[in-house]
Amino acid sequence: MSSVAVPTPKAVHRSSMDWLQAWLPKLVLAPSVVIVLVGFYAYILWTLLLSFTNSRFMPSYKWVGLDQYLRLMENDRWWVASQNLLVFGGLFIAISLLIGVVLAVLLDQRIRQEGAIRTIYLYPMALSMIVTGTAWQWLLNPGLGLDKLLRDWGWEGFRFDWLVDPDRVVYCLVIAAVWQASGFVMALFLAGLRGVDQSIIRAAQVDGASLPTIYLRIVLPSLRPVFFSALMILAHIAIKSFDLVAAMTAGGPGYASDLPAMFMYTHTFTRGQMGLGAASAMLMLAAILAILVPYLYSELRTKRHE
């Protein structure tokens, strides 16, 4: 007679533990994966579908092809928003990077009260864009902000009315956005600078290189990944900027300070042109992908060569 092996309680327990260890990470991650798939990618596909329909106040699935994209290209307000994005995004990214790098280099000199100074510069990033926009709207308002304060102090000829000037209002958005984001860029670069091998800097100093030369030619070029990370984050902030515009200018005067995100919200939720708003949202996504894909390709290619 052949005997059948009966699993011992210890073996059963070990098998159960192995199963739990194999499946527990998947069970923990499953809700997050479902939320991302449904709440992010599924809605992207749904928005893409709506951009090919004649949806107005409510979704409609009557296919109109590229009509919404053609209407978008013929919309003057869209072109104003796109031009504003180029000005706002270009200045915002360039100035934030410049200020952030300069502050990071200065703090890298191990100055006194570095922790307090770093906190002061990082604090604006803890605020929401709504708070930032509201605060700067008060500061730059000609009737009650810095303009009025300086005139009350005796500078009667002082004028700073950019907030109500259609040709300059977009620069007010740049000022507020730079104020909020430059400290974050500083933190990114400071973390990168603290990771640089100090022996390289000391060797360059022994060879007679000045400190500015060391940073410009040795240290900062080695922080290429940090630079691209900061560029990606700032570009993402610029393209999706809505709350700053809504709180600070509401797109005005007229629609002189419109950005694509504001255009999308206005036409989708207040003007009942959901199909047109969906088309503008897809072009915004395309703009983000146009920055993201080359960056990812460059990084993957670099790692492959390494």
Rank of each mutant, 00 (worst) to 15 (best):
A191N: 08
F158S: 06
A176L: 02
A191F: 03
W162A: 15
W162K: 05
V170W: 01
W155R: 06
D161V: 07
F158A: 12
D161W: 02
G154Q: 03
A187I: 15
V185G: 11
L163F: 08
M186D: 04
G183S: 10
L173S: 01
D165S: 15
L173H: 06
R159C: 01
L190E: 00
V178L: 11
A176P: 07
Q180G: 10
A177H: 13
V178W: 13
W162E: 10
Y171K: 09
V174M: 06
V169D: 02
G157F: 04
F189D: 00
A177K: 13
G183E: 10
F184L: 15
I175G: 00
E156H: 07
Y171G: 10
F184T: 07
F158G: 11
G157Y: 02
A191L: 08
F184N: 12
D167P: 05
V164A: 05
W179K: 13
W179Y: 15
Y171S: 13
I175L: 15
F158C: 12
V170A: 03
G154H: 06
D161R: 11
G154Y: 04
F160G: 09
F184K: 12
F158I: 10
W162M: 14
A176M: 05
C172F: 10
I175M: 08
F160H: 14
A176Y: 02
M186H: 05
A176W: 01
A176K: 07
R168Q: 12
V164N: 10
V164C: 01
L190V: 00
F160M: 15
V178F: 11
F189T: 03
A187Q: 12
V178K: 06
A181H: 10
Q180H: 14
C172W: 02
A181I: 01
A191R: 05
I175Y: 11
V169R: 01
D167K: 11
A191T: 14
